[in-house]
Design a protein around this nucleic acid. Structure first.
Length: 792
DNA sequence: AGCACGCCGACT
DNA sequence: GTCGGCGTGCTC
């Protein structure tokens, strides 16, 4: 019996299967889809069995060392999906396999030195081994002993062993139960009597933490009783429960409006007929998309099938989880980055074992190992977070459609502001377009006001708040209503510039300006992590006139305090929400009315739904507009529409104020009137002229190297290859320096391919990848993103 | 990716 | 004459 294995080494030359002999004693468990540990060269590494066969052309097979799983972790569907993913994204097969599993299942490797023969080895070395045996690589390195050890290995005095460590561990809880032997306990032993009492009450078996809680007994008491034989201890597997101690109120079906009913019918039809169909559910905020999702899932569950519901990371709020857990209870697993590695592993195991039938999660939940998918839903379909930015660079939407084809089930893409690509496909009839035209309860859309900040400046207002905004904020607070202020800080946090010579403080390793962080009085590079103190004088001209530009949330908070010291503000950004659960805490506090203003970045644009919010202010609408990205207008429109949706979701009508320096830009004008269709028409015209998606597909090749000329040279070679091999209907742009021309001392050049039809492109790109991804001194690093979302 | 093997410069 | 630099090639 021979197993073909993909080993855990992401490298060009290793990106294929290696055959191994299956030893007799493992033949019963070895199947495709299980993980194994195999010898590979001098070391031992983890691998995935892709297939089993009886013959091979390879001589001198090595045997599989051990198996990691009893049950396959990847079923046939996911194995073949990984092949598809590899082809689509041009990634290594091992990366495609790994991305489907929780991080906890990634192997860790350790090296140990074992002393074989202590005769004639240096005293210090002996001492090292006395302190630690086997000796870890880490301590050996710390004592600068690696070189000597190498020598000793050559003389067979020391041996190096490779150990594969599994980081995934199952949480165990200690259980004690009463033994049958009725051993006398003295009347003095009150705690012991209590323990026996409690155990009897609860059927003779309890976990140690619970028992301690109930009786206030110490570990010593329990240990004594175990030693005496009164109690028997054992261990039980336990799931880490991220929602421990939380109850979810059962929620019931809403009666669907006619509008919703009309939308859900075609979906249910496909659910019932087991047919693939991609639906685009277009409905403004508050039009009741979620209820459609819930009722579709309900139908799927009735058929004993399963559902995946994807939401953008930042909108996976407790409110959202509440809604799903409330409706489907224990049938729901939740997967998002806020969970610990162990918690994610446990949620995954619930899915794998078939203990849940619904998963609500961020991007990677698209790989949930369900066997009978009945529907896949992607909420906020247009969100960028569905595209993974590192290898495998997949888009969850594409994976969803691929999986739905294999399972014969519908996909629902939901959004108030669909991506142009999706809307265009829906218009063409590739997707089935479903429109929800009315808001539930027939609320009015909030009134949107655009303030021209240039005007403000002309009138002498140099602050970041327009007079209109300040006035409105004051009004709301007086009425005891709440305000949300939104600052799109992403990529444009404060930078520092010398007012005399105009020098902007830059990262020494990247072509990026440094970001000022008030809390540490330091400047950080967002790309390489470089950090330095704020200089007292300009490094170029020694002037002391240094000015802080740009506006971060911290600064807004301060300014706000200066202007209205009595107003209570909650700030939400990466800095204040990095701690686990802090996101929820802040939102809850705001919901309870403990603050008047919620000030934040992207993350507050979604999901937030409090009845008392009547004003939403966007401090600077155009920061995103000027990014070097053909989707800049689209993103701006989406964001502004999204943010506006936060105001007046309930009885009180809301107002939105958008501050901008370019009020005449169509994406701002149309966000004001909330007219998606017009925006779509206008933007489509722009895309057509500029030859961008959805009219053309694009692929982006990025070359990076320490030497500018090398990077530019290789990039130019590649451009030439492309020009020579591709049809003349394709457009090759570049080579040009990447918008971020240098990261971590590596210069970056890129080349963009725009094409409509290019059947040979994938194989050509693969060839290029092969040709240029050799390892060596002057090797460049090459990245290819098929359908990129980030142009930087 | 690691790691071993192997071929040319500065040392005992 | 040897130690050690890192270029090249292999891992079932």
């Amino acid at each position: 019996m021979i197993a073909s294995v993909i080993v855990d080494v992401p490298a060009k030359q290793i990106d294929r299967t290696f055959d191994y002999l299956v030893p007799e004693n493992l033949q019963a468990v070895v199947r495709k889809g299980i993980r194994v540990i195999v010898p590979f060269g001098p070391r031992k590494i983890q691998g995935f069995i892709l297939s089993i066969k009886d013959e091979t052309a390879v001589k001198n097979l090595k045997p599989i060392e051990e198996v990691v799983d009893i049950e396959p972790v990847l079923n046939d569907e996911l194995l073949s999906l990984s092949e598809w993913l590899t082809e689509q994204t041009l990634c290594y097969r091992i990366s495609a396999l790994q991305v489907m599993l929780p991080a906890a299942m990634k192997a860790k490797y350790n090296k140990y030195f074992h002393l074989l023969d202590s005769h004639g080895i240096p005293v210090e070395m002996k001492r090292l081994f006395e302190k630690e045996s086997p000796l870890t690589w880490k301590t050996a390195d710390a004592h600068h002993a690696l070189k000597d050890l190498q020598e000793l290995i050559r003389h067979r005095k020391v041996e190096m062993r490779y150990v594969v460590k599994q980081s995934a561990n199952v949480k165990k809880v200690r259980i004690v139960e009463l033994s049958n032997e009725n051993i006398e306990v003295s009347g003095n032993a009150k705690k012991q009597l209590m323990i026996i009492e409690e155990l009897k009450k609860s059927g003779g078996k309890l976990s140690v933490p619970v028992l301690k809680e109930l009786t206030d007994a110490t570990s010593a008491v329990i240990k004594t009783m175990i030693d005496k034989g009164i109690l028997i201890e054992s261990y039980d597997e336990q799931y880490r429960d991220p929602f421990n101690q939380r109850t979810f109120d059962k929620t019931e079906h809403f009666k669907l409006t006619d509008d919703q009913q009309k939308a859900i019918m075609p979906i249910l039809e496909k659910v019932n007929s087991f047919e693939q169909q991609t639906f685009l559910l277009h409905g403004v905020t508050g039009s009741g998309k979620t209820e459609i999702y819930l009722q579709t899932i309900d139908q799927v569950l009735k058929q004993d099938r399963q559902a995946i519901m994807l939401v953008p990371e930042i909108s996976l709020t407790p409110q959202m989880v509440q809604r799903f857990k409330g409706r489907f209870g224990d049938q729901v697993a939740v997967m998002h980055s806020g969970l610990s590695v162990g918690e994610k592993y446990d949620e995954w195991r619930k899915i794998h074992r078939g203990e849940v039938n619904v998963v609500v999660g961020a991007r990677s939940a698209i790989f949930a190992p369900f066997k009978r998918l009945g529907v896949i839903i992607i909420d906020e379909e247009h969100e960028m977070s569905y595209k993974q930015e590192d290898s495998p660079r997949y888009h969850a939407r594409d994976v969803a459609i691929e999986r739905s084809n294999r399972h014969g089930c519908p996909v629902i893409l939901g959004s108030a502001t669909p991506s142009l690509e999706s809307f265009a496909r829906a218009k063409k009839g590739n997707y089935h377009l479903l429109e929800l035209e009315y808001r539930m309860n027939n609320q009015d859309m909030p009134e949107v006001k655009v303030v021209d900040m240039r005007e403000e400046l002309r009138e002498g207002n140099r602050s970041m708040f327009s007079r209109d905004l300040l006035e409105e904020v004051a009004k709301r607070i007086e009425k005891k209503e709440q305000v949300v202020l939104f600052l799109n800080r992403r990529g444009y946090s404060s930078f520092i510039m010398c007012r005399d010579c105009g020098t902007v403080m830059q990262c020494p390793h990247c072509e990026v300006s440094l970001t000022y962080h008030r809390s540490k009085e330091s400047m950080k590079c967002h790309y390489c992590g470089h950090e330095e103190y704020v200089p007292n004088e300009c490094p170029e001209c020694t002037s002391e006139h240094i000015r802080y530009f740009g506006t971060g949330t911290q600064k807004v908070e301060e300014e706000l305090f200066k202007l209205m010291p009595h107003v209570r503000t909650i700030r939400m950004d990466v800095d204040t929400t990095s701690k686990k659960g802090s996101h929820e805490k802040l939102l809850n506090a705001f919901g309870r009315g403990e603050a008047d203003i919620l000030l934040g970045t992207q993350m507050i644009a979604k999901g937030l739904d409090f009845p008392n919010i009547t004003l939403v202010g966007v401090l600077s609408a155009d920061t995103m507009l000027h990014l070097p990205d053909f989707r800049a207008s689209e993103k701006t429109f989406q964001l502004l529409t999204q943010v506006s949706g936060r105001a007046g979701r309930h009885e009180k009508t809301g107002e939105v104020i958008i501050q901008t320096y370019t009020p005449e830009h169509f994406s701002i004008e149309l966000a004001k009137s909330q007219h998606y269709e017009w925006f779509y028409q206008k933007e489509m015209m722009m895309r057509k002229t500029a030859q961008y998606p959805p009219f053309y597909y694009i692929s982006l090749i990025t070359i990076s190297h320490e030497n500018v000329n090398k990077a530019a040279g290789v990039c130019s070679e590649i451009a030439d290859i492309l020009k020579a091999k591709l049809t003349d209907q394709s457009i090759i742009l570049g080579p040009v320096a990447s918008p971020i021309a240098r990261i971590q001392d590596k210069y970056r050049y890129q080349c963009m391919i725009k094409y409509k039809q290019e059947p040979e492109l994938k194989s050509l790109l693969k060839k290029i990848l092969d040709q240029y991804s050799h390892t060596g001194k002057d090797a460049v690093s090459i990245n290819i993103d098929v359908q990129p979302y980030m142009m930087m």
